Simulated assay, not measured.
Amino acid sequence: MNLKYRGKTKDVYELENGHYLLKFKDDVTGEDGVFDPGANTVGLQIAGAGRAGLKLTKHFFEVLQEQEIPTHYVDARLDEAEMIVKPAVVFGDGLEVICRYKATGSFMKRYGKYAVEGQDLGGFVEVTLKDDERQDPPISADALDVLGILSLTEYAQLKALTKQIGDVVKEELLNREIELYDIKLEFGKTETGEIMLIDEISGGNMRAYKDGVYIEPLELERLMNEA
């Protein structure tokens, strides 16, 4: 395997057949030892977080696969915390797309003058640039188009896919009486230009609550796999 990239929560290797291997780590994003899916730094390590994240990711990607929603998922090896994926071309140096159902986290930090914690946002979609130096700034559809990162047509497709995927995850969580507040997704393009979901869907990139109480990533995996 050829190491291509060391990420905050995953390392990426290129395989001989052209696919890629994602090695999930126990590192999670946050600040001052507190987990935060919207943070752009590693805040702490949680033993077993990598495997738990992959287990949830495998579940959600296979649900999306059944609904013929395009993703980069090929296969997963839970014991090794590894996932095999198709190659993808990212937009610019990478975008993060957040689907927000309830106001919390960075949304409240930016818009707390007008928003109330837990306020219903109806699946509001926002895009931020992956740019640690500038604290992952939010960016509009017009700015993405002007800068040549994403066309307006591609933005419309990205937004529709985000809401579709977010609603699938939201419904899956509701089956366990868990409420999704927000979820952070990443997208890329196939060699033929089709937009597809990449990266992961786990407790590490969403905020979920049960009976009004926030659920930590490992606890979310446990609750989702209860009989």
Rank of each mutant, 00 (worst) to 15 (best):
N2P: 08
A156P: 10
T29P: 08
K189G: 00
E14S: 08
I98M: 10
L158M: 15
E31R: 10
Y114F: 14
T71F: 00
A52V: 03
K113T: 15
V125D: 05
A88S: 11
K86P: 01
D32C: 10
T162E: 08
L173I: 09
G148M: 09
E172V: 10
I46G: 07
K23G: 11
I183G: 00
M224Q: 01
V127E: 14
K113F: 14
P37A: 03
Q45T: 15
M83G: 03
A49I: 04
D75M: 10
L78I: 15
D11A: 00
A115D: 02
A160I: 06
G105N: 14
K170R: 14
D93A: 09
I84K: 11
I195E: 02
L185V: 11
G18T: 12
K10E: 00
I98L: 14
G33D: 04
K55Y: 04
K8L: 14
Y101A: 07
G94E: 08
E186K: 04
V63W: 08
K130D: 08
G18M: 11
R176E: 12
I183N: 00
M196K: 05
G123V: 06
K159M: 05
R207S: 12
G33Q: 03
S151E: 12
V116K: 14
G50K: 00
D79V: 08
E126V: 07
L15F: 13
K130Q: 05
I201D: 03
Y181E: 15
D79G: 05
L174W: 12
A52C: 11
M224K: 06
L220N: 01
R100H: 06
T162W: 03
E117Q: 14
E179V: 11
A88V: 12
R100K: 10
E219W: 05
K58S: 11
G166D: 07
K159Y: 12
K58H: 13
K102R: 15
E96M: 08
M108L: 12
E96R: 13
F60W: 12
T29D: 07
L197Q: 02
E219L: 12
L173W: 06
A76C: 04
A81S: 15
L56N: 07
T41D: 15
T9L: 01
